[in-house]
């Protein structure tokens, strides 16, 4: 059969549109995972035990099972309890929660390493526990974890390909559409891979710049 990349330009618009969707989904899920990670971390560290324990269990389940399986649960599970969300929303929620758990792990470690002296210092000037967390501890912890969270976000971009399996028309599914019309899987998956690779390089570039800025500001 051989390879023939001349079929690609005719379908490049689908691919580009898919690319935009991938970026949009990745950004939305990243934002969700970032703030979700902070909330999860605070619950895991400071929540009352009645919340903390089941929460820990949930965390453990999220880290011990594949993302794809979680996406199936969220997508079909929401339908079962009567919430019929568009696939891309389910995809964002799934990706976002999954990576929120991983981010939460990082943030917890960071909070604990900042906490000791800083919390005491903040309390001695009269801040409440919650104020001290919000104004003193968390901002510092977040700065510490930005580089490793960057790694998670790069992983998130690549894992966003999985939402194609629940029918979200992002880059991977767009490539599949083009393949459906042309029967040229190698060419179109390779083109999709190239787009992912470029976005990935861009993210790594941004990450390096942020890291440099953080290391300078210290």
């Amino acid at each position: 059969m051989g390879l023939d990349f001349t079929v690609v330009p005719a379908h490049i618009d689908i691919i580009l549109l898919g690319c935009l969707w991938t970026i949009a989904i990745a950004v939305a899920a990243a934002v969700l995972s970032f703030f979700g990670g902070i909330v999860f971390a605070v619950i895991a560290l400071y929540g009352p035990w009645i919340i903390r324990l089941p929460f820990r269990l949930l965390e453990w389940v999220f880290m011990g099972t594949p993302l794809l399986l979680q996406l199936f649960l969220i997508y079909f599970g929401l339908v079962q309890i009567g919430i019929d969300l568009p696939a891309f929303v389910a995809g964002i929620i799934g990706l976002g929660l999954h990576f929120a758990v991983y981010n939460s792990e990082l943030i917890q470690t960071a909070i604990l390493s900042v906490d000791k002296g800083q919390m005491e210092a903040a309390r001695t000037v009269g801040l409440s526990r919650g104020q001290a967390l919000r104004k003193v501890v968390i901002p510092q912890a977040v700065r510490d974890v930005i580089p490793p969270i960057g790694n998670n976000m790069i992983a998130l971009l690549k894992d966003s390909a999985l939402v194609s399996v629940i029918g979200v028309s992002e880059l991977t599914l767009s490539a599949q559409r083009a393949i459906g019309a042309t029967y040229r899987p190698f060419e179109f998956y390779l083109v999709a891979a190239a787009f992912y690779y470029v976005i990935n390089l861009g993210m790594e570039w941004v990450q390096r710049r942020i890291e440099r800025r953080i290391s300078i500001s210290r």
Binding site: L3, K158, S160, A161, L162, E187, Y189, A193, Y196, N200
Partner: peptide, 22 residues
């Protein structure tokens, strides 16, 4: 760089669906 920079799912698809072409 290439294998860590692209989704494993796509790599799998290239091999399984695209493999026969080569």
């Amino acid at each position: 760089s290439l294998f860590r920079g692209t989704p494993a799912l796509i790599q799998l698809f290239i091999l399984y669906f695209g493999g026969p072409q080569i």
